[in-house]
Simulated assay, not measured.
Amino acid sequence: MTGQDTLETGESVRYISASDLRGFVAALFEEAGLPKEDARTVADNLVCANLRGNDTHGVFRAPTYLERVRNGLYAATPRINVEETAFAARSVDGDNGMGAVVGTRAMQEAISVAGQCGTSLVSIRNSNHYGMAAYYVLQALEHDMVAIAFTNSSPAFPPWGGRKPFFGTSPLAVAVPAGKEQPYVLDMAMSVLARGNVYVAAQAGTSIPPGLALDKDGRPTTDPKALIDGGTMLPFGGVKGAALSMLMDIFGGVLSGAAFAGRVGNPHMDFDRPQNVGHLFMCFRPDLFMPMEVFKSRMDDLVATVKRQPRAEGIDEILIPGEREDRSRRRREKEGIPLSTDVCEKLDAEAAKAGLAQLNTTPAPFAGK
């Protein structure tokens, strides 16, 4: 497949509507053995990431997920168990289900409990890579709730002062509703560079920025393949990022009963065992402290005031966390989602295996057609 447009990596791209891509990916997972509703959840999780411009957590991940399902490393039909451990607390055993399925079930529980109790705490074990972390806290926004999502992940960079991968990039996600203004939506990995970007760069044959990684001998590198081949990423903010990554391992792994201390499986490399990723979700209602309309008004005041602040040289607009991603979503819903040639070919190969039709793409954005 070829296209006229290019991504930042210089790859040619094709465009596809979000609804078509969602249906295509859902069909792949349903053919792999997932129940229809779960297949749709996984597809929605991946396509939501593409819409928000987080392509490293989008349908690029589908072939790896499918391979793990076929090899029995992700349970296609998990028996997810939810245990009430206190009035507003739940413990979830994901039974090695796909991360998007387990995470969505756990967030539904967190929202339900917070609706009744005002707040909730849900710990999850025996889960897997669950895609874009913002996907879960965005669900709470639909119910006017504040949500925080912690997770651990497979080794990506060392503890401060080390040279061997140990802690994960472990993204932290937070969502806070607003009124007329943009809600606050944070989705932040513990590394300067999201690990998915490394795999994308390696596939595209491009380099990564300097100062973000070491090779297997502890030397600085810009070669993503050198990083993948025994190297290590570096945390953002030096010792501060390393400290936060340890906190993510405590909340996601130690507290939940999931794997921790460098024992979480890598979805791309460890095809001999489950990942056993752990998460922790927190939700609460802002109207515990003041009427909801007052809280939203105060949030609107904060957001508007932030955006009015004097701008640094060369800056046209001050954006709040989540605003850039929401603009990407709005644009891609109209123009279609751009997919690289490589991703298209891999998805078409998966369709061929499943006996399904190939992607229905176009070489240019939909706008102006």
Rank of each mutant, 00 (worst) to 15 (best):
A304M: 02
G23R: 01
K225D: 05
A178L: 08
V146Y: 04
K334N: 01
G262E: 15
R219L: 06
A189S: 04
L234K: 09
L212G: 02
P267K: 00
K216N: 05
L280W: 03
L121A: 12
V239R: 15
S19V: 15
K216L: 10
I250S: 14
L359I: 08
A147G: 12
I315T: 09
G237F: 15
Y184K: 01
V185T: 01
I228Q: 06
P365N: 09
A18L: 05
N45E: 01
L280D: 06
L347N: 03
G53I: 03
W160Q: 01
G179P: 08
E335D: 15
G237L: 10
N50G: 12
D187Q: 08
D55Q: 03
S12T: 07
G230Y: 07
I337R: 11
G241E: 06
F281K: 14
Y184M: 14
H129I: 00
E335Q: 09
T169Q: 09
G205N: 08
Q4C: 13
L280C: 14
P171G: 04
A62T: 01
N276K: 03
R22S: 06
A26C: 13
Y130E: 04
M282N: 10
M282G: 13
R263N: 06
A114L: 10
D270H: 12
R195W: 13
D20G: 08
P155D: 01
G115P: 03
G162K: 02
A351K: 05
P220H: 13
I250R: 02
E109I: 04
G94E: 12
M132R: 14
F60I: 11
R329T: 06
A173R: 08
P310W: 04
A114F: 07
L255W: 10
T221Q: 12
G179F: 08
R332S: 12
M269Q: 12
C117G: 11
P310V: 13
A86Y: 08
P310D: 12
G355M: 02
K240V: 11
M248D: 14
G131S: 03
G265T: 06
V277T: 08
R105K: 10
A213D: 10
L28N: 09
Y74L: 03
